[in-house]
Design a protein around this nucleic acid. Structure first.
Lengths: 302, 302
DNA sequence: ATTTCTTTTGTCAAAAAGACAATAATATGG
DNA sequence: CCATATTATTGTCTTTTTGACAAAAGAAAT
């Protein structure tokens, strides 16, 4: 028995609630649908549908089975489509989702180069700090801080996401340079607001984490504005190293307490991750983009 | 074309590295294997295997496809088996994995009752605080503190996992009863060692978390021994409410700082979760156990 | 009660998969 | 270097499965 065909029929019948509707959808006579599903039921030893000549309904077990089967069919189709497109040239629309600040500072500068390499790929980039799921199929790759959410999602660590305290020379000359982590509690702080509230300042001493958050001078979810405040000497901020690197080099910002373990969360494995569904790596446009990012970002900072 | 059959053949060939070996495994002539896989390849438009009459190897794309297909076949088989066993009576071996302390204090007292209800189910219980994955098929249900790790794993919150500070009356009369969360830092503490180190004491004030861990008098990963130390007045411990409830009732332990938000982690949604793979709920022995636990645990403490 | 719509069943044709033998290709052994 | 053995493929036939069309049975609506 062709179980796959039976499952497709079954899903369509459940969706439409009718054998004939499913039959027209597949351009086969209703009898075929009836026979396939009947075969499936005898194989499983259970009735999946209660058919009363006029109305078709799912049984309890049918409902549960349908849910699982639908997921399986989607996965298989995704794999098949990925393989089919494998040997075509990289082209088409590539949907990318990224954290706002990372997108602006690291991604955008690379994209011109990428577009020159692959002119047939149309980039569609949306920046957001919300955790949009990859499950809805409209995003090919995502860039997020954190970890892999699901086994089916493949995660590549692009670079570490080391958080360091920084301040402008003007601020430091006016207020003095802190010599100890606990001193931060009395300082003006510029805080980034995540979807889960403002990021605290955490200090690690002997595997113990202490909250040493300063007095909030500014709280915002806009990294550009926070950075502007920091450059103007409004206070101390704890920011990812990659985001402040240019200002450290130019001397506009100074790194503080370099020998102290400070962060905004207790998790050491934090990094910037490139996320995509495994089968998608077979799609040329996705593959070249992933390889391009890995090539251009991992060589630099890691 | 029966793609499912072709995929099964493909997996077997990849596994054995031989068409004939796969053929004998399925008790069909090798020509059938060859034809099915050839069909599959033409459908996908790609070669999955490089066959050189003597040795069969996977292509790059074949390797990737195989990995995905194997997973899909396993899922489908799991769903099918679950449905097949749906209308049988609850029986057979039921493998349960649980956190040690929860198993000893809450689970064991219920199991006699469960065994009386379902004498045909053989219980196989292993207690461990390690995070054993449900993916390897040898565990039917698991009980863990924390969250759902994967979309395919279904999680039911059995009860909250509220952590509260407690101490024995003897300790309190000798050392005094703390009136403020920050006072805890100067007290003797009994700490539970998780796989990620001793649990700190955290105090929440205005969305800010402060580490107020006491001076460690005892650190252990054995909850029974820690409890013994606590009952003997060796110090303060922060423990799940359900684990100390009997001692609170009997007066052997006293809850401290009831108006203060203390915990061992920053995550408010923490709870005791019952975990299982979705298709397993169709298996009677699993279903009755889950329903039994939900019935007997959620009514009590939640 | 009749009409209408829908599922099922019967029968036959078409397509797909299996069986068996023969062929081609490549390692291994002498 | 050649012969042999092993393995995948191809050709042909048989068996099984699926699709197609018509007819029948069942249930709701007019």
């Amino acid at each position: 028995m062709d179980q796959l065909l039976a499952l497709k029929y079954f899903c369509k019948v459940a969706e439409t609630g009718s054998f004939t509707a499913a039959a027209t959808a597949f351009s086969v006579p209703p009898s075929s649908i009836s026979r396939r599903i009947s075969d499936l039921e005898t194989n499983l030893g259970t009735h999946l549908l209660t058919r009363s000549t006029r109305v078709v309904k799912l049984t309890e077990i049918g409902t549960a089975y349908l849910e699982q089967v639908k997921e399986i069919l989607v996965q298989l189709e995704l794999s098949n489509e990925s393989v089919k497109s494998y040997q075509s040239s990289p082209m088409g629309q590539l949907r990318i989702s990224s954290m706002v600040s990372f997108g602006e500072r690291k991604l955008f500068p690379l994209l011109d180069q990428f577009s020159a390499l692959y002119p047939d790929i149309t980039l569609d980039i949306s920046l957001s700090d919300e955790l949009s799921s990859l499950a809805n199929d409209d995003i090919d790759v995502a860039i997020r801080g954190g970890y892999a959410p699901d086994e089916r999602i493949h995660a590549i660590k692009l670079m570490p996401n080391e958080f360091i305290p920084v301040a402008s020379p003007a601020y430091l000359s006016a207020m003095g340079t802190p010599q100890d982590g606990f001193e931060l509690r009395n300082r003006q702080g510029l805080f980034f607001r995540t979807p889960r509230g403002p990021s605290p300042w955490l200090l690690e001493i002997n595997d113990q984490w202490h909250d040493v958050s300063g007095q909030p001078a500014v709280i915002s979810n806009n990294a550009n504005w926070l950075m502007k405040q920091g450059l103007e000497g409004k206070g101390i901020m704890i920011a990812p190293r990659w985001s402040v690197e240019p200002h450290l080099v130019s001397g506009e910002l100074v790194e503080l307490l370099t020998d102290t373990a400070l962060s905004v969360n207790q998790n050491p494995g934090m990094g910037i991750y490139l996320l995509y569904q495994k089968p998608k790596y077979l799609v040329p446009k996705v593959k070249v983009f992933i390889d391009f990012l890995v090539e251009n970002l991992m060589g630099r900072d890691d």
